[in-house]
Design a protein around this nucleic acid. Structure first.
Lengths: 136, 136
DNA sequence: CTAGAGTTTGGACTTTGTCTAATTCGAGAT
DNA sequence: ATCTCGAATTAGACAAAGTCCAAACTCTAG
């Protein structure tokens, strides 16, 4: 499935999101690249030509997408959150030196021996992060 | 093994850290509690009586401890880093609502099917975070 | 006691993200 | 085509976490 700006309105609607210009641009920035982007990076991409979308809107929109399950949040770097347009179950490979983040499909990975959850707790998700650096 | 302020100097020295007053206090805050603390929390604990240790020193010292392998960094919350005096292999259970962080021993957990590391990469560590919330 | 390396400090600064009140937008009614 | 009104967007002030730096302090060896 390829993503164009034209797809975006439908994608947003299918997630119960009113497709405005700004939201389409932000969705397009993420889905056309299929990369992990920080809020800053999204901001920059959306405003390449002239300033078109405000910081507040970028943050609002990313939170909205997150809440509606359109994207995921990846917390690996102490000073910025990445947003991930891939919502299929997967894990992450993080290069601590370059900051580069790669998906690892969850299909072949199996995790056993997890303890039972505490009484009254619901599982929100399992994040597996493999941190690497250049060998030396 | 119980930790007292008196232990701390030896512990620091054994990690090649010059034991100053501030460093002993900070180490003691972490090791006497054996809890995950943010820089802010360490700051508050160390300065309960009157202000004794500056923000810069707390950050410097935590970075130094980290670099010397005395403590670990836990990145689960988008807006603060936790420092973990437990350096044995273990994973984390994170309550996204309360912010409470619990250790899960790595012994019984087995992860299989990890892909081979990219050419020239060295494994830095594997972080497994089980995110939970109150059921409902 | 003195020198010098190593440590600590306050405070200015940066970055990421939040908040709010005012404005603008746009879909549907007319 | 225009009007209306709730939803969306905006600028900019604010907050929190963390970094940086030059000056001051401390400790130990001589």
């Amino acid at each position: 499935m390829r993503y164009s700006r034209d797809n975006m309105a439908g994608l947003l609607r299918s997630h119960d999101i009113n497709p405005t210009h700004q939201r389409i641009e932000i969705a397009y920035a993420l889905f056309s690249r299929m990369e992990h982007l920080s809020a800053d990076q999204v901001m920059a991409l959306v405003n390449v030509h002239h300033s078109e979308t405000s910081k507040a809107t970028v943050y609002n929109t990313l939170s909205l997408f997150l809440q509606k399950g359109l994207i995921r949040e990846v917390i690996v770097d102490p000073n910025k959150v990445f947003y991930d347009p891939n919502t299929r179950p997967h894990h992450h490979l993080y290069d601590v030196e370059s900051g580069h983040l790669t998906d690892v499909d969850a299909e072949d990975i199996h995790i056993s021996g997890l303890p039972p959850l505490p009484e009254g707790a619901a599982l929100e998700g399992i994040d597996l992060i493999v941190r690497i650096r250049k060998a030396g």
